[in-house]
Design a binder for these strands. Structure first.
Lengths: 161, 161
DNA sequence: ACCAGGTGCTTTACTCGTGAAGGAGTCAGG
DNA sequence: CCTGACTCCTTCACGAGTAAAGCACCTGGT
């Protein structure tokens, strides 16, 4: 039995008629979320990237071209301030470039540099591999089912656009 | 479709033969983990408690008596340093007390104060209610299924004890 | 009885995130 | 044209987390 199982067993023993099903889901989600972020050294490439920095580079990579900070803010579920600092750091490390957008001078175009593209192409597969290992106890069908159930929960929560 | 769905669709379009199933699970888990932590004001009681502080008080509440910091560290998946500071803050706010354990003078007994017990008894039900709302899109059976699948993944990951 | 190595908690120095305030740009109504 | 309200990004002051070092204490082999 996992930690959350023991926790809710303890609650149940104490208050037999409390409905703990939310804890058994959300508690596990939070735990798995944290554990999935504790990647072994080998997974993160040369420049030690945090999970969120990796998400930024991934977003740039899959979008193909440039992206505005506000979009990255939404995708990473963090504050605008955090994005600003993150981009400054990534630019400092030579992984992205920032340049004024032509259309609206308030906007910034963020792009991967050559080096940034090379880094994300090396690190992302390792990251996915690590996630696959975490999910090893599940069959393919179970993994798909898990993805579906989570999508069902997230659907109404995620911002409409 | 949720954000992660759009993300993996974008990847698929670009690299049709990449296996993205880990992203579709872990990505959603991470997102839901973050969103479940962004509780509306009303959920957290008088003293503004963070999610982890609430976990500490809950652990003390359900264990019935006292607990050592090292145990709380393991349950909250954070560092010992973080636990030390957290306990100092909670003690400052009068929610817990810390006293030397009789057995081993390195150990500390952490207990809920009267006020601490009152606070957690008020806040925890609100918290569970909020989690229940997040999971509203699922039927009872689906919620149970989701809990099971997550337990299957966490089983091998959680520390053995 | 000693003391070397291990354990349990705290402290220190630092990084990273946040909300709120700030500066610059756009735009619609008069 | 102005001007006031809005948007986009950045800066600031601060809170909270971490790793590593530190301190006090226990324990088992000699």
């Amino acid at each position: 039995m996992d930690v959350v199982g023991r926790i809710s067993a303890q609650w149940r023993e104490r208050y037999p008629d409390m409905d703990l099903s939310p804890i058994e889901v959300i508690g596990r989600v939070r735990r798995l979320g944290v554990l999935s972020g504790q990647m072994p050294e080998r997974v993160l490439g040369e420049p030690r990237l945090s999970r969120v920095e990796l998400e930024v580079l991934s977003a740039l990579r899959r979008s193909g071209g440039q992206m505005r900070p506000s979009l990255l803010t939404r995708e990473t579920l963090s504050s605008g301030a955090a994005t600003s600092k993150r981009l400054a750091k990534l630019a400092e490390e030579g992984l992205i470039s920032r340049s004024a957008s032509g259309r609206d001078r308030r906007e910034i175009d963020v792009r991967l540099t050559e080096r940034g593209r090379e880094v994300i192409d090396r690190v992302l597969p390792a990251q996915i591999e690590w996630e696959r290992e975490l999910l090893a106890p599940l069959s393919d069908a179970e993994r798909a089912q898990l993805a579906d159930l989570l999508a069902k929960v997230l659907g109404p929560l995620d911002p409409p656009a």
